[in-house]
Amino acid sequence: MAEEEVASAYAAAPEDGHQLLVTEEDGEEDLARWAERGLARGDKLLVAADERHPDGAALVETLTRHGLAAAGAARDGRIEVVAAARFYNAEGYEQLVEQSLRDGHGGVRSFGGPHIAAGVLDPAGFAEFERLLGRLWASRGASALCCYPGVRDETLDEAIRRHRSGWRHRLLHLHDRGHGRLDVHGEIDSSNDELFAALLAAATHRVSTGTDTEPLPGKRRVHEPESDPSGTEVHGRRRLLVLDCTGLTFSSVSGWRATVAGTEAFRAGGGRVALTGLHPLAVRLLHMTGFAAAFDLPETGGGNRR
């Protein structure tokens, strides 16, 4: 594959893929933004039916309330609420995806979660279904946002490991680009700093074991361990994580502390963490607090302005 193709596919990926949504709320706002992205791309949107959205009309009402022109999209057959029994059935789901692509939609994206699947699949069955979603992203470019309400501790770790493309939580979105590169978007404060640390811990573990690279949609695998372009791989284990903070518009001190904590094990094992795209205030805060010592920072942008 030409490098430009790889780059453009990855560039498109932050908003797409097989993603985890961690939420303490109902996830409605996130569903709306996910749908907005889908409508803009010409995707077909498949939403697993639950109590709030038992049918298309309820979903259209919700999306309209969030400012989307959902009624027209529904008329065009671009929005569909799917009964849980059909959605959470491997064969049924694959058929939905194939049918949507045959119907000429630009792509497919779905929205569901374990609380909806609970009536249909046991935990092992749901885990298998999540693997299917990962495969369908890789092979068919079908995106899926999996909403895990109130998930924490070991269940959270498990949920993080299941999703390869990225993780969302209200203001925060972490996108795993593979090849030891993570993009962080949004804001970190005391509402999501612990989650951020957990996400980084999972991501760095994935990096150090070389299991962080997902195949691109509809293409063959691009990652071949022996041809790592960054040259940071040692005996098949990458030692460098690049955390691109260009999209990080705010981080509290606790957010930077979480960055230190979440990468602790990786760094203790000899890994290095490079922070790129930092805003000047972030550089200043990192130097001010001494957290800078844990990371590779760009040379420019002096932290001791005063």
Partner: peptide, 12 residues
């Protein structure tokens, strides 16, 4: 930006 960050820490 600095002021906002300071206010945010005090708020936390």
């Amino acid at each position: 930006q600095e002021y906002l960050a300071a206010i945010s820490e005090v708020l936390t």
